[in-house]
Design a protein around this nucleic acid. Sequence first.
DNA 1: CGCATTTGACCCGCGC
DNA 2: GCGCGGGTCAAATGCG
Length: 319
Amino acid sequence: MDYSSSCVDTSLDLNSKPYHRELYDAPLPPPKKELESKFIDFGMKLGAKQETGPLVEELNRVSAENKKLTEMLTMMCENYNSLRNQLAEYMNKNPAEKELSPSKKRKSESSNNNSNNIIGANGNSESSSTDEESCKKPREEEPIKTKVWKTCVRTEATDTSLIVKDGYQWRKYGQKVTRDNPSPRAYFKCSFAPSCPVKKKVQRSVDDQSILVATYEGEHNHPQPSPLEATSGQNRGMTLTSVPCSANAISSSGPNITLDFTKPKSGTDSKSAKPARTESPDVRKFLVDQMASSLTKDPNFTAALAAAISGRIYQQKSN
DNA sequence: CGCATTTGACCCGCGC
DNA sequence: GCGCGGGTCAAATGCG
Ligand SMILES: [Zn+2]
């Protein structure tokens, strides 16, 4: 987890060619010519003869543009994650936050490493347990460096089971209804290792019922049981605004990771809920999340749909 | 039978 | 001290 490249290219570079890196591994990425010809065949078969040509051309152009935008967005996200990791590392190395009043809270040095998303958040062979509480200071709260960070996960709005698949094994130990949110909050504890202190809280967002906000605290002291094999498709994780911090520093602007775990669920793409005009400061993150998710999903969806349609047309023609 | 989940009880900090 | 709200416990229940 060395961030070897100390300078990150955050330029957008609109005019660079967008195919320097394959963005998503769609099962059958059709070449554009072939796709266009199949679209033309499709249009011919439907009988709308002449008008479909420019429309198909427009569609292809828009798709290419969309793909380019997706590429840019992914690069931006990668650069952002890299920058954020560097910032986190810098903040860990240089504890410059002396703004806390020394009477109430004592800040705890956090020298832990943090990877950029929650999937790869293992590798913490810390065991730096030299801080045993043998000292008999009465009011000395331990450096409970329970790092808290949030993740916003998009799931189906109809999924009532309030479960976030993140590759770990969790045991639910509580569920409460909170004051300012009609949806209940579930409390989980990591049950893979008996000594793993990681807990998480999962609750739906107030703004968007299809977003689960999971709050992780602590760090796993064991390797990840299952590597979350579902990342092999359209759901590319995208993290936003995640800086791990100690538990006493979370105020309104807590750290957040926004992931997109939306399953490619049988075609029915429900990006229905849009958090229009909400005045929460977090809603901007949700908007960004949804924009990113839509941008990420749409080219895949259109490509898959076009491939499916063209394949079906081709099959029909061959029959 | 052993595990996880459910769910009301309990605890505890905080504000009045 | 008391009420309230969030967090946890644990007995009951469900499930393989
Ligand atoms: Zn764990």
